[in-house]
């Protein structure tokens, strides 16, 4: 059997193995069944009534969102105001786009924005696939005890704060006493001041970020992996598929729903940065690549208690994130059906 026919064979096989109760097949052929979506012409209210049991399940959520999310949203107006504690949110004076102007007028704004995107982009490029790959590799481990131990250990970095980790990394990456440079020196190379050199700082951020989050990130993918019907694999093996074939044609497609949504969120998060990580690791030597939006605006917003400004920065970030997510979602929908909308 030629290998290139493998994928098609597997897909056919999957389809043939899924058992649809005969009654449903019959009924759907007969036409009017509950499994079909309703015709669009029906009025809104009658649709809600028709599916009322489903709608009722959703009601508590609506209440929750209104009370705890939408109610405070009135506070967004602070971004357009000069917030004074004593006047409250409603009483504080409007200043239009002044807070935003202050933000854009800051001298290093564009540099800082660029840094934010660069760092997040790199983290996305390398950091997004990492947990998926790790999950796949973990999946291949047969010894349950070994697997569980590895998983637990891989979760540990997630729980440590950057305040603590930065101290450890500063020592670890030190050009004079850090193990990495000792190794480099032993190999005859020149020691590299990772945290003090612009060319290296971003890489350090990305690598340490992956190190910290990859283990924890596998959880959701492992959960999805357990939902795959093992019969697919059995049958594939019987037909001579290798582990690689299985991974590529069964495992990955089955992860598609989860991967898609995680990816959409990740892209939307490009405007975000990990304040704690960067704040604890950066220094003057690397400002030009390491200063990001949150480190740059933190003093102004929080320390100087300029909540109007802080709110404007947040709003700016959120609008960008929202636009990114909507766009990515559209693209995702073209490829498969698992977007957010």
């Amino acid at each position: 059997m030629e290998k290139s026919w493998m994928p098609i064979r597997i897909i056919f096989f999957i389809c043939s193995r899924v058992r649809i109760p005969k009654e449903v097949l019959v009924l759907s052929k007969a036409g009017n069944t509950v499994s079909l979506p309703p015709p669009k012409k029906t009025g809104i209210l009658s649709r809600y009534w028709k599916y009322r049991s489903l709608v009722m399940l959703f009601l508590p959520a609506i209440l929750y969102y209104i009370l705890f999310k939408y109610l405070p949203i009135f506070g967004v107006q602070i971004a357009f105001k000069k917030y004074m504690f004593r006047l409250g949110i409603w009483g504080s004076p409007w200043v239009g786009f002044e807070n935003f102007e202050k933000l854009f007028a800051m001298n290093s704004f564009w540099e800082v924005l660029r840094n934010t995107f660069m760092i997040s982009g790199l983290k996305l490029l390398f950091g997004f696939p990492a947990p998926i790959l790790l999950a796949l590799l973990l999946n291949e481990i047969r010894n349950v005890v070994f697997k569980r131990v590895v998983q637990t250990i891989s979760y540990l970095p997630h729980f440590l704060s950057w305040v603590i980790l930065s101290g450890i990394f500063i020592q670890f990456l030190s050009p004079s006493i850090g193990p990495i440079n000792i190794f480099i020196k032993a190999m005859g190379g020149r020691p590299i001041y990772f945290l003090g050199e612009e060319e290296w700082f971003r890489s350090v951020l990305v690598i340490t970020h992956i190190w910290k989050s990859v283990g924890w990130g596998t959880i959701v993918y492992l959960a999805a992996l357990t939902g795959i019907n093992p019969e697919y694999y059995e049958a594939a093996y019987i037909d001579g598929a290798t582990r690689w074939h299985c991974a590529r044609y069964i495992t990955l497609p089955s992860l598609a729903p989860v991967i898609t949504i995680m990816l959409i969120f990740a892209v939307g998060g490009i405007i975000e940065d990990d304040f704690n990580q960067i704040y604890n690791l950066y220094s003057e030597a690397v400002y030009s690549v390491g200063d990001v939006l949150s480190t740059y605006t933190y003093r102004r917003g929080l320390v100087k208690m300029d909540y109007g400004f802080a709110s404007a920065v947040d709003l700016f970030k959120n609008v960008i994130a929202f636009v990114l997510i909507v766009s990515t979602n559209k693209i995702a929908n073209r490829i498969n059906d698992y977007g957010i909308w």
């Binding site: 405070p72 949203i73 506070g75 602070i78 917030y83 909540y307 609008v319 994130a321």
Partner: peptide, 21 residues
Amino acid sequence: WTGFVVFTMFFSGGMIPTYLT
């Protein structure tokens, strides 16, 4: 409704309005 919930992921009042609410 999906939009309804997703919207709240991006737009929120911030620390003080949430606290006051």
